[in-house]
Design a protein around this nucleic acid. Structure first.
Lengths: 227, 227
DNA sequence: CACATAATTTGAACATGTTCAACATGTTGT
DNA sequence: ACAACATGTTGAACATGTTCAAATTATGTG
């Protein structure tokens, strides 16, 4: 009966060590950047040994994954709330993209090193890889929600594949954001505000037969290329 | 009269040391990858000291820049030759993109680390940065040539900005190529073969008024977002 | 409780990218 | 030829990510 209490308490303590490490690491990433956040400094600040940090995180990159997951979850929470009142496809998409920029903002200085880590196919943070699947799913769900809840509804045949394409556009936006050195990343904001109506208008053109055929081709290409 | 001969010979010798280092490094990148190619191994293989390698290349990333430049130059040489006989815009674009994949092929294993380095805004290899300007210009010129030499000629208003957008698409293709684990990167080939006709058809739709307006919007957005 | 097993923690050790003061060699002006 | 200067070269030293055998602490068992 009682024998598991200590087990449980330890599980909690273990969890707490892990969370302490993550919290310290993320804070340092934000405040002083990737390079200055050395594993020794993290361990030191968290009050554990270097080796112990590696007991909880297999590599420094795994701490970046932790950051990625937290940011994606925050994005999901934040955005799913803001799109609730919005009906138009464009408005919903815009809200989700802006929410993404909002959530990432504190980490903009860290962005370069983040994306450099994330883009390496062998990295745990790679958004297409296995280890980041939970974060990716959370993000993808957001774009499914954008499409599903839109009114007027989007063309039937788009509803399956569009979310993934939008997620891809979101990845592109992030890439742009990382390189955006303008004050408060205003250029990224303008990109979003300019791009979204274009996507919306583009989709509305699907009614024109000639254009419609191209849409089919795009969708087919996207499908045939996927893994 | 003669006093400069030695100066010249030394300049040549210095150049040779540099080239030896570059050649050794690039070969090792190809054969054993980025991580196993240590600065010590490079220096050793080239028959110089570690410090001496740093006299010629400020960092390991600078050796990656060297690779980037050589590959882009090879691409320019190879592609400008192959498009000579081709008239159609699609054929020309396809040829240039395939030539790119051909030239990069030996380095596919290295691609992940390469792009991870290249995408960091602070990296000398960053394709949007100052240090890689020569390589970027060589590549951009290729897409200007694709557009300029196309027959039937492309719409007047596209001729200025299209090359840059095509170059961007090329960057995207490269990103795809890096993650492409299919045999001989065949999926990248299929992406190119599928994407190019779509671009060509898309452009031909500019005749339709409704579509034409969107084209203007895209071009305006692209212009307003640029630096 | 005593012991075995599992989970957690430590810090020294290693390989690597990079720096730098010292040295060596080549160049130029007188 | 000599002295100043410029160019090229060396290897030891440093900081950092990562590994690992050993120590410590917690849990389960008889």
């Amino acid at each position: 009966m009682f024998k598991n209490i200590w087990g449980h308490l330890m599980a909690v303590k273990s969890e707490r060590t892990r969370e302490m490490l993550a919290s310290v690491a993320l804070g340092m990433f934000r405040e002083i950047g990737f390079e200055k956040t050395t594993m020794r400094a993290i361990a030191n600040e968290a009050g554990v040994s270097v080796g112990n940090a590696y007991y909880y995180f297999a590599s420094k990159d795994d701490l970046v994954l932790e950051l990625y997951e937290q940011v994606q979850n925050e994005h999901a929470a934040h955005a799913s709330h803001t799109i609730e009142g919005l009906e138009g496809f464009g408005d919903r998409l815009k809200a989700v993209l802006h929410a993404g920029v909002d959530v990432m903002a504190p980490y903009h200085g860290f962005g370069g090193d983040f994306i450099s880590t994330a883009i390496r196919p062998s990295s745990p943070v790679n958004p297409f890889g296995d280890q980041s699947a939970p974060a990716r799913e959370a993000s993808l769900a957001l774009f499914h929600a954008v499409v599903k809840g839109a009114s007027p509804a989007l063309p039937e045949k788009l509803r399956n594949d569009l979310p993934e394409l939008l997620w891809l556009a979101y990845m592109g936006t992030t890439l742009f954001w990382v390189h955006d050195t303008s004050e408060n990343q205003q250029r990224t904001r303008r990109l979003i505000d300019g791009l979204v109506p274009l996507i919306a208008k583009g989709i509305s053109l699907a009614k024109i037969p000639g254009v419609n055929r191209i849409f089919d081709d795009v969708l087919n290409l996207a499908r045939s290329i996927r893994a």
